[in-house]
Design a protein around this nucleic acid. Structure first.
Lengths: 304, 304
DNA sequence: GCCACGGATGAAACTTACTTTCATGAGCCC
DNA sequence: GGGCTCATGAAAGTAAGTTTCATCCGTGGC
C-alpha cells in the first residue's frame, strides 16, 4: 500500500469524535454519511460490522474503509476499538435529547438555556483538548518575536480578530485588526520576514482571509490560521494551523459555540504571550485598567 | 453445542475485568492463560487480533473463542470492544486541574490551556445554571415586542453588544449598537415606550452604560442589563437584570471567561427570540448566509 | 459543444480474521 | 484395560475486512 491516501493529521488528541467532526466537510459525500452515523452514536457504530455500517450509510464497505483512512485509522477494526473507547469515556450528557441536536420546536426557555450552555461549554472543553500545545508554542514564539502582528477575520470571526488585537495591544505588542479587505491587503503587502499574520475563519473558506494571508505569506511573514476545519482552503496558506472543535448545528445558535471556541484559543495564545514577560505584561495591563478608571462608578467596593 | 460451558452471568456490574478475574479459577488452564493476559492489559488485548492473542497465550484461536464464551461474550470482536471501552474508562481522572486559581509562573502551555479551558467552560456552565428563565422570558418578550432595540457596551463588553446587535439584525429585528457614548446618548433620547435598551457591563460600574440606560429609561423604554454583579450601580437603572457567573481572576486571562459568559446569555436570548417566530427567523438567517456565499471558496465540500 | 481528466464510487476479487468442527489424547473411574 | 469425560489444537469453513478495478460524473480545457 505504497500509495496510501492517508491524510496524515499529526495527532488527534482531543478525542476521535471531535476530530472526525472537524474533518467532516473535507470528506466525500458518501464518507460524510458514514461520519455522521459515527458521530451521532459512536458506541453503536463500534458494535456494527463494516458491512452493517456500510449498509446503514447506504454505501459500500470500500467507502467505509476509505473513511477510516481519511480520519487517520489503519482500518475498520482500529476505528471500532477507538470508537468504543471514546464512547466509554464520554460522560453522560445531562439531558439526553439536548445533545448537539437542534432545539425542539416546543422547547421552553429553560430547556433552551440548558442546551446552549451544554453545547457551548463542550465546544470550549473539546477545543482545549484537541489544541496542540506544540503548535501554540510556535505561534506564541512568532508573536513574541514579531515586529508587527496583523489579524484578519470577516464577519463573526472579525469580532474575535478584533478581540485578539486589543488583547495584544494591551500588553504592548504592535497588533492591528482590519475589518475591511482592502485595508487588510494593503497592510499585508507591507509585512515582511519576522512579522506575523493571523487569519481567523470558522469555515476556513472565507476567500478574503485566504487572499490576505496569501499576500502576507508571499511577503515573507509567518502566517497563522484559526479555523474549525483542518483541511479547508485557508490551511493551505498557513504556516501554523490552530483548530477549534465546535460542532456547530446549522443556524440554530447563531454560531456562538464556534465563537467561544475561538475566543478560548485566542485567550490561550494571549496568556502564553503574556507569560513570556510577566512583569512587563502586568504593568501594561495595570496601566490600561487605570486609564478607564474614571469611567467607573465607585472606585472601591460596590454598594452598601 | 449443547454442552455450552457458558457461565451466564446476567451482566457484570463491577466491570468486565473484575468479572473475568472472578471467573479465572473456573476456567481451563489454556483459557486462564488468555484471561491473565487480558486482565493484565485490557487495552493491549483489545488491540490484538484473535490469532495474535492466541499466540501470546500459547494456545489456539479456538481456545480464545471458548474464553470469550466463558466470560459471557458472543465472540472475540465483542470482547475486543468491551475491553477497549473498559480500558478507556479506567484511565483518566483528568488530573487535578488548576481550579480557579492563577496560573503558576512556571506553567507550560499545556497547563495554561487546561486551566483556561476549565475556567472558561465553568463560567459558561455556571452562568447558565444561575440564569433565571423567567427574567429571560420577560426580556425576550420585550425584544419581540420592541419597535427598536438599542444595545450599549463599552470596551470588552462592546464586542458582546455588537455581537448581539448583529444577531438580532440577522433575524430581522431593528437593533443598534453604539460604540460611542455620545451617539448612544443621542439615540437613547429618541427611544420611547415599547422600545428596549440593553446595557452590557461586566463590572456593572461603567458610567457610560449607566448614563445611557438612565436616559433610555427616562424616555419610557424598557431597560435590560447584563452584568456579573447583581448589586452594582447599573442594576439600579434596569427593569430586568441578567447576570453572568464568571469569577474573573484579576487581569490574568484577559477577561475572556466573562466574555464567554456574556456571549452565552446573549445566545440564549437570541435563540429565545428566534424561537418565537421560527419560519421567519430561519428564512432571514438563510438569506443572510446566502449573501456572503460568494465570499466562500468551494460551495460544496472542501478540498480534494 | 466535445473531449480529456480526475475524483468518487461500488462490485467483485481477494486476504485476513473469526468460528466451527472434529480428531486426538490426557486423565479418571470402574 | 475399557470406556468415559473433557481440554485442546488442527483444519475446515464462514464471515469480516481490504484491495483492485471499471464505471460514472462533474470540471475545465480547447
Amino acid at each position: 500500500m505504497a500509495k496510501s491516501p492517508k491524510i496524515s493529521v499529526s495527532h488527534e488528541p482531543g478525542g476521535l469524535i471531535v476530530h472526525i467532526s472537524g474533518l467532516l466537510p473535507s470528506l466525500s459525500p458518501a464518507e460524510q454519511r458514514v461520519a455522521r452515523l459515527v458521530v451521532a452514536d459512536p458506541a453503536d457504530a463500534a458494535r456494527r460490522t463494516i458491512t452493517d455500517l456500510a449498509t446503514a450509510a447506504e454505501t459500500s464497505e470500500a467507502t467505509v474503509i476509505r473513511f477510516c483512512r481519511s480520519v487517520g485509522m489503519d482500518g475498520y477494526p482500529q476505528l471500532r476499538i477507538r470508537l468504543a473507547a471514546e464512547a466509554a469515556r464520554r460522560v453522560e450528557p445531562p439531558d439526553a435529547r439536548v445533545v448537539g441536536g437542534d432545539i425542539p420546536p416546543g422547547a421552553d426557555l429553560a430547556q433552551i438555556i440548558a442546551t446552549i450552555a451544554f453545547n457551548d461549554a463542550r465546544a470550549v472543553e473539546e477545543t482545549a483538548e484537541q489544541l496542540d500545545p506544540a503548535v501554540c508554542e510556535r505561534v506564541v514564539d512568532a508573536i513574541v518575536g514579531a515586529g508587527r502582528i496583523d489579524i484578519y477575520g470577516a464577519g463573526a470571526s472579525g469580532f474575535v480578530a478584533s478581540d485578539f488585537q486589543q488583547k495584544l495591544h494591551r500588553i504592548g505588542r504592535t497588533a492591528f485588526y482590519f475589518p475591511d479587505v482592502h485595508t487588510a491587503l494593503t497592510s499585508a503587502a507591507l509585512l515582511g520576514r519576522g512579522d506575523v499574520a493571523i487569519g481567523i475563519s470558522h469555515t476556513g473558506t472565507t476567500s478574503d482571509v485566504v487572499e490576505v494571508l496569501e499576500q502576507a505569506r508571499s511577503r515573507g511573514a509567518t502566517t497563522v490560521v484559526l479555523t474549525n476545519f483542518p483541511r479547508s482552503p485557508v490551511t493551505d496558506v498557513a504556516d501554523h494551523v490552530l483548530t477549534t472543535a465546535a460542532r456547530e448545528t446549522t443556524y440554530r445558535s447563531g454560531a456562538t459555540a464556534s465563537r467561544l471556541a475561538q475566543l478560548t484559543v485566542v485567550d490561550c495564545l494571549f496568556v502564553g504571550v503574556a507569560a513570556r514577560n510577566r512583569p512587563r505584561a502586568r504593568k501594561a495591563l495595570e496601566a490600561t485598567a487605570e486609564a478607564v478608571r474614571s469611567h467607573r462608578i465607585g472606585s472601591g467596593r460596590r454598594r452598601a
